[in-house]
Nucleic acid binder design. Sequence first.
DNA 1: TATACTAATGACTAATTGGTCAGTTGTCAA
DNA 2: TTGACAACTGACCAATTAGTCATTAGTATA
Lengths: 280, 280
Amino acid sequence: MVKKQLIMEKSLELFVENGFESTSVQQITERCGISKGAFYLHFKSKDELIYCLIDQFMSEFIADVERSVSGDTPPEELLYNFLHLIFSEFQKQANIAKLFMKEQVVSFNKDLLEKMQMYQIMFNRIILSVVQRQYVQTDKKMHLDIVMVINGLTKSYSELIFLDNYSVDLDKLCKSIVEKVSIIAQHANIHTITLDYFASTNHQIQITRESIIELINEVLNEIDDHKIVRESLVLLKEHLKESNLSEVLVQGLLKNIRTHTRCKWIAFLYQLEIEKEGGQ
Amino acid sequence: MVKKQLIMEKSLELFVENGFESTSVQQITERCGISKGAFYLHFKSKDELIYCLIDQFMSEFIADVERSVSGDTPPEELLYNFLHLIFSEFQKQANIAKLFMKEQVVSFNKDLLEKMQMYQIMFNRIILSVVQRQYVQTDKKMHLDIVMVINGLTKSYSELIFLDNYSVDLDKLCKSIVEKVSIIAQHANIHTITLDYFASTNHQIQITRESIIELINEVLNEIDDHKIVRESLVLLKEHLKESNLSEVLVQGLLKNIRTHTRCKWIAFLYQLEIEKEGGQ
DNA sequence: TATACTAATGACTAATTGGTCAGTTGTCAA
DNA sequence: TTGACAACTGACCAATTAGTCATTAGTATA
């Protein structure tokens, strides 16, 4: 399995350097010092590689972001925590962050495109929930515009830092963005986006119990170690079908699996699903 | 020459649909209903096509932007004018605007990359000059951060409107952005970017008299009609070498050529060059 | 009609692409 | 030493690519 990681790392470098389309499998295998056949031992196709690369990063990333602004954070620290996590995660995974900034949606296959869209929506949802909690005083009509401001500032500062290699003090940067957003939340009156935008994009994302079960099965096939994680997953899967566990037990099981990187995404979707059920 | 325009239009469509790398010359010629040979009658290579496409749009775009915030605009309207021009220009040239948002710098050849970088710097300079004039009261240390805010907001709202097809009232949108930026200019205190960033990027852009003369010669070869434009260009070229005209005459000649789309860029660079000279 | 010219064609090439698979290598246990 | 097995190789394939060029079509002038 270590070779698979090697391929992912080296190919990521090449994608950042030359773009996805312009990087050939040949180039990847050369940089890895392996043969072409070895590549196809680990990935069914070049498309699967890019899909893996993005999915692995994004599922973990979104789940981390979600946790950084979870219920037990004081409302006034939400945005700061959110920003800090994003920028430090970008710093840790500089290559894939750059790939996201440079390469855009074009030229990805349909599956990946849909997935990306879903991540985008989830991301916006998280930001919206941050805004709703941190800026309770602000008129709700402004909330979506504030989401746009956060999105825009994050984007332009990210590019400055990671593409232009401008070095800043992370703490100061986050504080400065929080300051700007807070000022706007306090004083701005003109809003341009209405909730129908979110409504129109939200219904596109379909999380079903079946899709989560499928995901769990996938992960169960992949991990062999970690008895606790395996058994928790099995129990959670059971619960999805039969609803045979109390809430507190489910929360415990979710905490069990969240430590495993491959499960963060499942935990996130699971939480969303049971919240949806509870709300109805 | 009408066929060249056809190629540019149709190829632009395809680039937006599939990306630059994934669009083959074959596809372009098919959509145009012409043969492969005909394509290479108008463009030396596929690279030249994309270069033309971007350069033609950008040179005109930047020059228009620059004019929209020129000296005779009341300071309090500068940012509004700037934003309004950008968004309405994007609306007019929706396809190429989308291309810029979707396709990023990767996979372009070196020449084009340098050019793009130059445009980016010019763009930032224009925004900075807007900020400096409209927000004179604001601490200068905040100016670059305000530039970042404008950049970020423009970017995220553009994507919302042009990629997600969210329709908004242009006037209201611009007012809302101006409001946000003004609020930040008034209240924000934490700044994260220092002028050394601009200093470090600015020296990269080298406009020499020779390069302007070269540009003028290029355009002279391309346009046959328009006697006034031709003669103005020749006189301006002379003046670059000999400095034989008074400032007021030069300004008049610049006004003569600015009406011609292919000359807007030259006029812009020329203005920059003579200002540089005057300042020294 | 004959000539001269440009505009346009599309079969062609050489190179590269993603992907395959018969065969080789290395590493175990028996 | 043998045999079984998985990891790995790289020559190979069909498809596609950007770009070329001998040929043809169309048109204006003589």
